[in-house]
Computed example of a mutant assay.
Amino acid sequence: MKLNLLPISHVCTEDGEKPMVLLPYMNWGNLKLFLRQCKLAEANNPQAISQQDLVHMAIQIACGMSYLARREVIHKDLAARNCVIDDSMQVKITDNALARDLFPMDYHCLGDNENRPVRWMALESLLNNDFSSASDVWAFGVTLWELMTLGQTPYVDIDPFEMAAYLKDGYRIAQPINCPDELFAVMACCWALDPEERPKFQQLVQCLTEFHAALGAYV
């Protein structure tokens, strides 16, 4: 859904000046930082954020990515750090290049002078620099894992230079604590080695929407 993409409101390109971009204000800011604040708050208030809230965020991200995929736009850097959120829990996808400055530890140079979000990348992207909507789906699976862990770093114990071999051998990040099996199964589908075997974003929207409704039935 286009609503889940952060639009550029205005651009200023005056001669001799650095270009400036004006973006809508999202008062809870960067999603990764928001999730980490929720984790800190959880120690005092276990109900600070519900599983339903987190799944609702995932649905919004999947909707935004589905919109991009239908228009054959590849994001290449989908992650919680490249999403923003407001006080009504509305999430929008962005990629304003600031993530590399705000979260330098999320990017690694593999010897070719190009910083990449290695821990979010599909195997074919790591090996062959091959990006597609299917590689965005892989990154979505990692983003969903970030949501369920309230902003933890994936594959934190794996050397970035070893990521490709680690993934090729079939290893993946572990199921988060308190993450339902059904939700972890969605993540696992996103990490299929064969890009053709990964779900499409519209399928993810449907699956997560049904899971969200099921959660609501028990609350």
Rank of each mutant, 00 (worst) to 15 (best):
residue 3 L to Y: 11
residue 11 V to C: 14
residue 13 T to A: 14
residue 15 D to Q: 13
residue 19 P to S: 09
residue 20 M to S: 13
residue 20 M to A: 14
residue 24 P to V: 10
residue 25 Y to R: 11
residue 30 N to E: 13
residue 30 N to T: 12
residue 31 L to Y: 03
residue 33 L to W: 11
residue 34 F to H: 14
residue 34 F to P: 01
residue 35 L to D: 01
residue 35 L to Q: 02
residue 35 L to K: 02
residue 36 R to L: 10
residue 37 Q to P: 03
residue 37 Q to M: 15
residue 37 Q to F: 09
residue 40 L to T: 14
residue 42 E to Y: 11
residue 45 N to F: 08
residue 50 S to V: 02
residue 51 Q to I: 12
residue 51 Q to D: 11
residue 52 Q to D: 10
residue 62 A to E: 02
residue 64 G to K: 00
residue 67 Y to M: 07
residue 67 Y to D: 06
residue 68 L to W: 02
residue 75 H to N: 09
residue 80 A to C: 10
residue 83 C to T: 06
residue 89 M to C: 14
residue 92 K to F: 04
residue 93 I to C: 04
residue 99 A to N: 03
residue 99 A to P: 02
residue 106 D to V: 00
residue 109 C to Y: 05
residue 111 G to F: 08
residue 114 E to K: 13
residue 122 A to Y: 00
residue 123 L to S: 04
residue 125 S to W: 04
residue 127 L to M: 12
residue 131 F to N: 07
residue 134 A to C: 10
residue 135 S to L: 03
residue 138 W to P: 00
residue 142 V to P: 05
residue 143 T to D: 07
residue 144 L to E: 06
residue 146 E to L: 07
residue 147 L to H: 05
residue 151 G to R: 07
residue 153 T to F: 08
residue 160 P to G: 09
residue 161 F to Q: 15
residue 165 A to M: 15
residue 167 L to Y: 04
residue 172 R to W: 01
residue 173 I to P: 01
residue 178 N to Q: 14
residue 181 D to V: 15
residue 184 F to V: 04
residue 186 V to R: 00
residue 187 M to L: 13
residue 192 A to W: 00
residue 194 D to G: 09
residue 196 E to F: 09
residue 198 R to Y: 00
residue 199 P to T: 03
residue 201 F to T: 01
residue 202 Q to K: 12
residue 202 Q to C: 11
residue 206 Q to E: 14
residue 207 C to P: 00
residue 211 F to R: 05
residue 214 A to E: 15
residue 215 L to N: 06
residue 216 G to I: 07
